[in-house]
Amino acid sequence: MTNQKESNAIIEIEDLDFYYNQTKALKNVSLDINKNEVFAFIGPSGCGKTTLLRVLNRMNDLIPKTRVVGKVQIEGHDIYDPNVDVVQLRKSVGTVFQKPNPFPISIFDNVAYGPKAHGIKNKKELMEIVEESLRQAALWDEVKDRLNDSATGLSGGQQQRLCIARVMAVKPEIILMDEPTSALDPIATLKVEELINELKQNYTVVIVTHNMEQAARVSDKTALFLNGSIIETNETNQLFTNPKEQETEDYITGKFG
């Protein structure tokens, strides 16, 4: 019984519960995210946005005593199946973190880090990947003359775009972004937002943001989280202009959060 709409989903989450120790951080979450879509998670602090994002590439595996109940499928495969290769999963589901975290090595080596780890040794090939990724991340022109300088010398916004380039160099299918602009100034934020608009040609992007204008600017669909549950999911402009739930309206009109 798969209809056209469902087969389009690259991420399918069904009745997901998530626990930190005994604490239930996600309750009965179900969500479909389509290919080449920018999907935003919004909601007040502590409602589980980061937790769900980290479920999608199993980064929560690194936190002891966490537990997943329910089903998460990416491209039709259950990612919590015991046979899943987590390293492969993380290759196809990349992450941009809230705080830019460039490695304390050169700009070039940062971008080449993933490809090198995955066995690409050829210098020319690496150079091509690095240039392409930096161009995609709209950083190439700013750094092309100092690829061998340390990445930690870049500005915050440049560092974040470098982290985006680093993810793209691995050629993932899906890019997860956890408040990618919260540490950036307005101009750097604008650059990253423009970038996200470009990205959806080739990637599926899931973005967490506290900023509703940002969600409105970059995303196709939005889900509102409250206390570990999804209150409403809809086309972004629908959700903001014509919310179905009272809680959504309260949140977007600033009554809480």
Partner: peptide, 11 residues
């Protein structure tokens, strides 16, 4: 952050 950054790249 750095460790997670590396692991998240599929290493």
């Amino acid at each position: 952050n750095l460790k997670e950054g590396s692991l998240a790249l599929g290493t």
